[in-house]
């Protein structure tokens, strides 16, 4: 078998070389998390401190808050945000009018390219009590103006909804492509059998997407603690900190600002371990339940 498929080994060679050189060779750097890193002495020359940085993180007054905030944002994004690109792709697939379809696709995909700085800037402008469009609309229907960005409890909703706005179109691309490769003879057969659009969507299209959905879900579960730094950092202000301080922003302020790479590395490693553990569990579950899994 190996001999017969010798060419396949050449297929994987470039990628393997890349991974070894740029990912596996540098992996010795993980030990920064267990050392007190002095840049001039190099990684190996820096003293070993064991779990010191981890303990600093665990003992921090903010440890539980920060993890709680991260999970809150992450899970909300997953539960509320994940289905939307799938739905969007399914709906677009049923559109016969080609021009309209292209229009919707292009318009929904465009927000992905707006840089985070501008995106959050706009968000803040829209939500301003006295001059933001959202509050203007509330006032127009007689409701009270709200300082959305000031109420910490709103934070994860604002984060998630704006992410949905920005990313759904882009995320739906992979599903649109998957739907495009559905065998049309199958579809014809279903029509002949009397299935209407809704039924076809549920019984043919959706199943086709299942492998991709499952894989994406598994991979998402592996980033449960990794809520992105930039957007949250830009959205933070003194009044919403109780809900907006997440692991990555906390580490940034506590570590990187003083050049404390070791601390940042330790927290990062902790993150990765938890993420990986969750991934393994979810993958195991997926293997038991279905055919698709990550490995």
């Amino acid at each position: 078998m190996i001999l017969r498929n010798w060419q396949l080994y050449l297929f994987v060679l470039p990628a393997v070389v890349y991974y070894i050189v740029f990912h596996y060779v540098p992996i010795y750097g993980v030990q920064i998390a267990f050392r007190q890193y002095y840049p001039m002495r190099g990684i190996l020359g820096s003293p070993w401190v064991g779990m010191k940085h981890f303990m600093r993180f665990f003992n921090s007054y903010y440890f539980t808050t920060v993890i709680g905030n991260t999970l809150r944002i992450s899970l909300t994004a997953l539960i509320v945000g994940f289905p939307i690109p799938v739905l969007l792709a399914l709906m677009l697939n049923e559109v016969q009018h080609l021009r309209f379809k292209k229009l919707v696709q292009t318009v929904t995909y465009a927000p992905h390219f707006i840089s985070m700085v501008v995106m959050v800037g706009m968000l803040i402008l829209f939500l301003t009590p006295s001059s933001g469009i959202i509050n203007h609309m509330l006032a127009a229907v007689g409701m009270e103006r709200k300082a959305f960005m000031q109420d910490a409890r709103n934070f994860h909703w604002i984060y998630v909804f704006s992410s949905i706005w920005q990313e759904s179109g882009w995320s739906s691309v992979i599903f649109v492509a998957a739907l495009a490769s559905i065998d049309s003879s199958q579809v014809e057969a279903a029509i002949i059998d009397g299935a209407n659009k809704l039924q076809r969507m549920v019984y043919i299209n959706l199943p086709v997407l299942i492998p991709t959905i499952v894989i994406m879900l598994i991979m998402r579960s592996g980033s449960i603690l990794s809520v992105g730094f930039e957007k949250v950092y830009l959205m933070q202000n003194a009044t919403n900190l109780s809900r907006s301080e997440i692991i990555s922003t906390y580490v940034y302020k506590a570590g990187l600002i003083d050049g404390d790479f070791s601390f940042a590395a330790a927290v990062g490693l902790f993150n990765s371990l938890i993420n990986f553990a969750i991934l393994v569990l979810v993958n195991l579950f997926a293997r038991r339940v279905g055919e698709t899994s990550l490995w």
């Binding site: 540098p26 992996i27 010795y28 993980v30 990765s272 990986f276």
Partner: peptide, 8 residues
């Protein structure tokens, strides 16, 4: 998930 990080 696991990587040496920026410095290495």
């Amino acid at each position: 998930f696991f990587g040496g990080g920026l410095i290495p």
